[in-house]
Design a binder for these strands. Structure first.
Lengths: 222, 222
DNA sequence: AAGATACATATTGTTGAACAATATTACTTA
DNA sequence: TAAGTAATATTGTTCAACAATATGTATCTT
């Protein structure tokens, strides 16, 4: 891979800039799970010192994107089946919490509707990568219904982990396809204030999605 | 304050050991909120290098116990009213999620019952610091009903933040007193499998507790 | 006296080299 | 082949240095 240097900008410290960049790469699946990241190599690659890189590693480790083994170094996280199950458990609790917390006519609902429609359009064009991005954004927005920065931060972490899983899969492309319609009807239920319906839609979505991810993960591990 | 050195042990890296120690101090209210922590001073205090300390700061910042302002340094977090409100929002979503997720006769229920009783006994002795610790432990355990390491981790973060708030208060002593009985009846409802009752107990608890903390915080800020 | 300016000082941001402690690899020998 | 040992590489941590930014102080102006 070609070296990347001068990531430093005015508003972002070098540490944060490199952390953002590595997070990007991780989410995009540019590393293989479990791969070792040597301090020497990586610091040379980004043209930064080992000391600075170690701060970066601490940051990403606290976000569960890297795994840290004392005296052995830092490795790309390799979420296994248990991790996926746990991630979906978090999603269920947080997203159900959002549905139960939403006041009818919450302004954020409008953004959700727009994203749901955007997903539909993109699905027609067949740009599945984009569909995935929009789908994630849809669910992120759902959690913002809670108006809770801490819940949103927690949710962002697990979504990033989930993207790490997607990066491991060969065929993550169609993983979002069947859910576009579910998103739309979920929004509809929320707009009507029909909490019970929204929850069952959500639960259906999460169960299906979890199964698909687990299956794809097992296929990939073969 | 007397210097503390040689925190290094076999199983804990120096960075982690110092992070743990500072977290302890923060939770115990040994620093004042908003207080600046200078790299020079603190690294000298613990007998570690600035580089290592910076890793520590990154860890604690990611746990919201410290606040980081670029080029200005690191400060003890000073959770305000908005933070408290948000913390209780997280608690409600996570703990309600736990109540809704619990299978009857979950082994963890036994630990909750034991903690509830322990709280009762300690209340009689009047050791309010211990009562507070046990109460926290009770609620931590409740979230463990989810069997989700990620949810527990998230909950641990907000509980630590909450303790930071307590540290700011003059009279945090009796802040746990009225809730001991509520904890006991909450366990009772869970053991009976009466989810609805458990949720309303929980909600009552959280609302009262939130109000008390907010009031005490405003008093302390005066 | 209040406010702006410029200088001096302290703090943070980052680096590179160094060395001890721990892992990994390669090699030797039974 | 297996075990043991030496050689090598990597991590853990420190230190000293310097640039960039922030803070404090003395000075000047009106």
């Amino acid at each position: 891979m070609a070296d990347e240097k001068n990531l430093h900008t005015d508003d972002l410290s070098l540490t944060e800039a490199v952390a953002d960049r590595i997070r990007q790469l991780l989410i995009a699946g540019e590393f293989s799970p479990g791969q070792k990241l040597s301090e020497h190599q990586v610091s040379a690659h980004f043209g930064i010192s080992r000391n600075t890189l170690r701060e970066v590693f601490r940051l990403l480790t606290s976000q569960r994107l890297l795994t840290y083994i004392p005296n052995r170094g830092v490795f790309v996280a390799a979420p296994d089946e248990a991790a996926v199950i746990d991630i979906y458990r978090v999603r269920f609790v947080l997203q159900r919490g959002a549905v139960q917390a939403v006041a009818k006519a919450h302004p954020t609902l409008i953004r959700m509707r727009r994203l749901a429609e955007q997903g539909r359009e993109l699905a027609r064009t067949g740009d599945w990568r984009q569909v995935g991005t929009i789908n994630m954004e849809f669910h992120r927005t759902m959690v913002e219904l809670c108006d809770s920065p801490r819940l949103s931060a927690c949710f962002d972490l697990v979504l990033a982990e989930l993207r790490l899983v997607f990066g491991q899969l060969e065929d993550s492309a169609h993983l979002h396809e069947p859910y576009i319609e579910l998103n739309a009807s979920l929004v509809a239920a929320l707009e009507l204030g029909d909490t019970a319906a929204a929850i069952s839609q959500l639960e259906a979505y999460l169960i299906k999605s979890e199964r698909a991810v687990l299956a794809a993960l097992q296929r990939a591990r073969r």
